[in-house]
Every structure is written in C-alpha cells, then in structure tokens.
C-alpha cells in the first residue's frame, strides 16, 4: 500500500508546466484514533481548471487540503503540487484553510504583512503595493486599518482570500470560501474565482454546496466518507444522466402526443407538466412544434441533471448525510 520511492534524493520537477496542478496517488490519512479521514485518494487536478472538491461535512476534504499544504503527514500514498518539491511549490500556492485565522490585535494590513513575512520568496520591497492590491481586490480597502477583532465574519473571510492573493500564484486552494458570506459576498467570491481563473491560475475549491460548485467550476471531484466517488469535467460527471425537457401546459395529452411524435423518449405526464428526455433535439424546435400543433404552452424548461443528482445516483443517498 505504501508506495514510497527509494530514490528519495532524486530531483523532482520533471513534470512539464502543462501537467496536473495537483496529483495524488493512494493518498491516505489515518489519524491516531484509527479513524481513516482520507482513504486511498487518487486525484488529478488539471492546470488551468477551476476544480470543485465536493463532499458532505466530514468527508475528508479539509484533511486532504492539509496534506497538500504539508500541514498533515499522509499515512500512505504520494502527492505532488505543481510538480515541485513542497518548499518550492507552496510559495506559488495561495491557500484558505478551514476558515480565516488572523491576529485579532493587528489591522488587516498588518496581518497581511505578517503572513507575507513568513513567505521566504516574497519580495519585501513590494509588500505595501501587493497588500494594497490584495485588499482592493476583495473590497476591503476601506477597512484596511481596522483591527481584525472588529471585522465582521464576511470581512474576515475576505481578508483570508486577500492573504491567498498576496503573491503571484499558480494555484489557489480555497476551502469553503463562501462560508459566512451573505448572498452578495458569495456572488463576489464567485466572480473573483472566475477572474482569477481567467488569468490562468488553477483554482481548487472545496465546498459542501453542490450548486455553488456547479456554477463556477470546470471540473469536480466528489468525496464521501474519505473516498473519492467520482471526478472529471462537470459535463462528464453529468454525462451519465440525461437532460430532460419540461413543458407546462393545460393540455397534457396533446403535449405528450407532440413530444412522442417528435421522437422524444420517456415521455411522462406529471400533474400539469409533461417531461421527456431531450436527446439531441433543440428546445426551440420543440416549442415551435407544440405551438404549431395548437398546444398551449405555459412554460418550457430544459432540466439538466445537477451534481446532486450525480451524487445521489452514485451513492444512493442524499448529499447532506454526514460521513
């Protein structure tokens, strides 16, 4: 099980820049109590992706992130971040781990300066500018001089994201970045993640909110009780499940007949609605056909399978069941 290399002194970094930003092979963490937090995890996070790391609370997401950041030693398995030895990879990684943590008696600016000082690669001469830019980016400029103690929960979360953006990053690891944020803040974080990803930075976001990940991620992995349930592009994860069309109409039999004549499968009527598998049909043509046949259409929607459906389909249980 333990795949430890013998040539420990061999130089790493053979991975080309185009390789995966995060790779794990059989990564396992068993805590002293015997509890297995992460069980033989094989993860591959492509560079440039926005990768959603999903799972209910207690499914091993944070432990995995702690291992990737070198805070917790794996019991078995291997991992690589940016294809570099840890000391060289971490300065290029911005991280938000299990909520914000700062010095309550320092201001936002002083806190960021403190963490910048801990990074051996950070350039001292540019720290003022970088701190200002990071605060600006998360919308905290006005509160920069305020003590952290007096920050609201949302401001604390923003400051933690600012800390992750202090330097030029190739990988951003965000553990539950929208925790404690109001809907407005959540939208801002989502926009920020998209903006960062647009610059080519790989973003690894953990979340227990499936809908949130679906909205901003290109790839996802789903964890359950320490094990990987599935991973891939959002499209491929959804691929196993079909997209349906839903027609709201007072004339259910008429609509069902039209859908059937168009060749749609699995047509069924559900109290004021007609559902069918969309297949390769264009929704607008279906609409035109319905109207052409004199069927009154009150509403028409394409129902895409959500990650929640994927999760339920794979595990046979609801997503909010704690591991």
């Amino acid at each position: 099980m333990t795949a430890v290399m013998q040539e420990a002194g061999a130089p790493f970094g053979a991975a080309p820049p185009s390789g995966d930003a995060i790779v794990t092979e059989g990564l396992t963490k068993r805590f002293r109590g015997g509890q297995v937090a992460v069980d033989a995890l094989d993860l591959a996070v492509p560079r440039g992706s926005v990768f959603g790391f999903l799972g209910p609370n207690g499914s091993g997401k944070t432990t995995t992130i702690r291992m990737l950041l070198g805070l917790v030693a794996p019991t078995a398995g291997e991992y690589a971040v940016l294809g570099l030895p840890q000391a060289e990879a971490l300065p290029k990684v911005g991280a938000l781990v299990e909520g914000p943590a700062f010095y309550p008696y320092l201001s936002g600016t002083a806190n960021l300066m403190r963490f910048d000082a801990a990074d051996p690669y950070a350039v001292r001469g540019t720290v003022r500018r970088r701190v200002e830019e990071a605060l600006e980016r998360v919308g905290l400029s006005a509160a920069a001089g305020k003590r952290y103690r007096n920050y609201s929960l949302g401001m604390r979360q923003r400051l933690a994201i600012a800390a992750a953006l202090l330097g030029p990053r190739e990988l951003l690891i965000l553990d539950e970045p929208t925790n404690g944020l109001d809907p407005q803040g959540t939208r801002e974080v989502r926009a920020l993640v998209k903006e960062i990803a647009a610059d080519g930075t790989t973003v690894f976001v953990s979340s227990h909110l499936l809908a949130e990940v679906e909205q901003m991620c290109t790839h996802a992995a789903i964890m359950r009780a320490g094990r990987l349930v599935a991973q891939g592009t959002i499209a491929s994860l959804n691929g196993g499940l079909v997209t349906r069309i839903r027609v709201e109409t007072p004339d259910e039999p008429g609509a069902a007949r039209v859908l059937g004549s168009l060749g749609l499968a699995e047509v069924r009527i559900e109290g004021g609605q007609v559902l069918a598998e969309l297949g390769g049909h264009a929704p607008e043509q279906i609409n035109a056909a319905l109207v052409g046949e004199g069927v009154a259409v009150r509403g028409l929607a394409v129902v895409r399978p959500s990650l929640e459906d994927v999760f339920v389909g794979l595990t046979g249980e609801g997503f909010d069941v704690d591991g």
């Binding site: 333990t2 420990a8 790493f12 790779v23 070198g70 030693a73 690589a80 840890q86």
Partner: peptide, 16 residues
C-alpha cells in the same frame, strides 16, 4: 508506475 513529480511521503515534511 510513478507519476512525474510526485513527492514521496517520507520526503514531504522535511523538504519543506
């Protein structure tokens, strides 16, 4: 069988 760039577990803590 090794993915390039993987860091052996025994190395990770010390290489930091």
């Amino acid at each position: 069988r090794r993915t390039p760039g993987l860091v052996p577990v025994t190395e990770t803590m010390r290489t930091t």
